[in-house]
Design a protein around this nucleic acid. Sequence first.
DNA 1: AATCCGGGGTC
DNA 2: GACCCAGGATT
Length: 348
Amino acid sequence: MSFQSEIVKWYLSNKRDLPWRDTTDPYVIWLSEIILQQTRVEQGKPYFLKFLENFPNVSAFASASEEQVLKLWQGLGYYSRGRNMLYTARYVVANYGGQFPTSYEQLIKLKGVGSYTAAAISSFSSNEQQAVVDGNVYRVLSRYFGIEEPINSNLGQKMFSELAKELIIDQEPAIYNQAIMEFGALQCKPKSPVCSECPVQLGCYAFKHKKIDQLPVKLKKVKVRKRWFNYFVGITGDEILTKQRMPGDVWQHLYDFPLIETEEEVSMTSNEFLTQVEKLFGKDLELKVLEGKKHILTHQIIYVQFFAIDNYIVNFNQHAEIKSVKIEAFKQLPHPKIIGDFIEKHID
DNA sequence: AATCCGGGGTC
DNA sequence: GACCCAGGATT
């Protein structure tokens, strides 16, 4: 039996029961695929259900506000996915009359939809012969066929997508694509794959040559930047100071607190820091240390320090980005995870 | 071609 | 701590 047939056979008896399977609605598939980008199934599942409940179709999604979408997205990360979804939902309503496209050619033009997602939606919704190449596929193919070209090199990506394209010929695209990804996720895992019970063990290059833990090859050395965020929690009566984050940095469009970023950990005796703080909040400011947290992102480690401020004065003319809003309204805004956690813990 | 964009799970 | 997750956009 061929590699592909074995994988499909394995899939039919081992697949998970997931809420986005058993539908060919391209809108629902799109929803699931965007949410699952760089996101584990178990992490994405509750978000998928929440989004489907709030937005049962693309028209409902299109009529949402960005704040509504980002609030639902809160905690999932890579927030541009949420912003792009809203853009795309409106685009589909405006240009396709709310009929979500199913062809690769149309899908690839949508914001937030790349080659993987276009292949996934087109094959799952209309059985178009487009091969998905995601992290699972890279791993399974590199191991089974013994491809040592790095999966994130230009040549590597080309080789893997060519191979995937050949393999899907004569397969049922929807099932085969899901099968090879599920196989990668459950059987041919990154760490400790279940080779002893593998249906394609005999043909597997990596198993034969004992290179399971060396494939796939991936070039990588991401430098992690360290940053120090000093947040100021200012509450007067039933209002709190907040600020929306701007383009060009993490958490774009989400709401946090007034912030002074420094090159290193600040000390309360640093004149330079205190001068900056007074410049923002006035001379009579009372400052208290609340708590410190370490927040890890892909390319950054952010050391977050929260300060409580009292008796502050903000010159809203000079600092138009800072606003004072009702605490209840503030809570409804979308926040970065680190801020959302702080609010839950400290602000009733 | 390299870098940025989150948060969480696993070993 | 290192790696990875049903990747995509930007420079």
